[in-house]
């Protein structure tokens, strides 16, 4: 099933937000990513068609952002910030902890398909590093105990109370 068939109205709504069609590229890529956790080639070709771009132009944008996955990822996509601020307060150590606990390095997925680890560029939480983002949620001021608990909670219940986000996107729902 194509994206247009499945999300026709949502795509129309996204397109209506921008006077220049091409600007809708990243929202559409996010929409495509929602499908299976990553963006398929078919989705990129379809988005190119919708926006009157060539597939390489879509590919260019999709490869630029670490938030967009071009390969399948686990149920929980751990993105550890490795930019300067977090690096100074120990993002390497965080990656080390995760590696010790889950046995995966950056770019790898656990055998059970639950976790994927990626080292990413700045996630704009420089004041609260080291930090990571798992799916749409932020986890900040990480310590080894916190990481332990986050991973354990996610494994058992699928969510963790330590989450502090999402902040940026999508906008938080305004329900009281």
């Amino acid at each position: 099933m194509t994206l247009s068939e499945k999300y026709g109205t949502e795509i129309a709504e996204i397109l209506s937000r921008y006077p220049v069609k091409r600007s809708a590229l990243i929202p559409l890529l996010y929409l495509a990513q929602r499908e299976g956790g990553y963006i398929t080639e078919a989705a990129m070709i379809e988005i190119a068609g919708i926006l009157k771009l060539t597939p390489p132009q879509v590919y260019e944008t999709a490869t630029f952002y670490t938030m967009l996955n071009l390969k399948p990822v686990g149920t929980f996509h751990i993105q550890v910030c490795k930019s300067l601020m977090c690096a100074l307060v120990g993002s390497d150590t965080v990656i080390g902890w995760i590696k010790a606990k889950l046995g995966i390095g950056p770019g790898e997925t656990t055998a059970d398909g639950l976790f994927t680890l990626t080292a990413v560029e700045c996630l704009a939480a420089c004041g609260t590093g080291p930090m990571m983002q798992i799916n749409d949620d932020y986890y900040e001021r990480l310590t080894e105990e916190k990481v332990d608990r986050i991973l354990a909670d996610l494994k058992s219940t699928g969510s963790c109370a330590l989450k502090t986000g999402p902040f940026m996107w999508p906008e938080p729902a305004r329900n009281g």
Binding site: M44, T54, P55, P56, Y59, T63, F64
Partner: peptide
């Protein structure tokens, strides 16, 4: 528009699709 700079920074590479 057949060529695209894929990736970022030093690891940018010229590809098609």
């Amino acid at each position: 528009k057949a060529l695209a700079p894929a990736g970022r920074g030093t690891m940018t590479e010229i590809k098609t699709f």
